[in-house]
């Protein structure tokens, strides 16, 4: 994100005498530590709400809360993981209590999202017999969303967001052993779904090449 140049920053500081030095320090640190994860949070919010407006609200709320409680963020730990945990709690408090049905996949929405994306299936340069390359983005998305939430969640946090098992365990309030086994079972379920799509494209996935 845009960090003001030192000279410019100094000038602004002098101008805003009303703003305490502490508050300015907090803002700068917040930009560097927290705001840089905005796109990740938005993507995760989209995945769990399946609705762009809800996702925006959720991210906004998360940052407001994060800023307010930034002093309680343990310096030196993963700020992204801290933000995700806040986002998840917000989601549970806000959306689960609403009349909204959780976990309902809106396939029209997925189509809108993926509609304009040019798929690489037909123009991949690699000569491959692997079903991996036959899969469309939309199919992988649908396969992921067909999983029970407890499996989908850990796969997203691990494979897409790159969190460690320890961070995931903390986020989902479960022991690391549970994270391990959910990932194991979730990936197995996912593979069945993906192979189903691959077979539709004419790939024999039983082959162990």
């Amino acid at each position: 994100m845009n960090k003001p140049a030192p000279t410019q920053q100094k000038k602004t500081l002098e101008k805003n005498a009303t703003l305490s030095r502490e508050e300015r320090k907090k803002q700068l640190e917040f930009q560097n530590e927290a705001v840089v994860h905005l796109h990740s949070l938005y993507n995760y919010a989209l995945h769990i709400t399946m609705n762009p407006d809800d996702a925006e609200d959720l991210v906004q709320e998360t940052y407001l809360k994060a800023y307010r409680f930034f002093n309680s963020f343990e310096r030196g730990t993963n700020c992204k993981a801290w933000l995700f945990k806040i986002l998840k709690n917000n989601y549970i408090n806000r959306f689960r209590k609403d009349s909204k049905e959780p976990g309902k996949v809106d396939y029209d929405l997925i189509k809108d999202f993926y509609h304009s994306i040019k798929d690489t299936r037909n123009d991949t340069t690699e000569a491959d017999s692997d079903y991996f390359h036959s899969l469309l983005h939309e199919e992988v998305y649908q396969a992921l969303h067909s999983l029970p939430e407890e499996f989908r969640e850990v796969i997203q946090l691990c494979d897409i967001e790159g969190f460690t098992y320890e961070e995931i365990a903390n986020m989902v309030d479960s022991p690391i052993g549970t994270v391990r086994s959910r990932l194991y079972r979730g990936r197995k379920l996912l593979r069945v779904q993906l192979e189903g799509y691959a077979q539709k494209h004419g790939f024999n996935t039983d082959d162990n090449q």
Partner: peptide, 16 residues
């Protein structure tokens, strides 16, 4: 392979 598929095929959107 499953992990790699998820990593590569799930599209990241830019926040508005």
């Amino acid at each position: 392979k499953t992990k790699m598929i998820i990593k590569e095929k799930i599209i990241r959107f830019k926040a508005p």
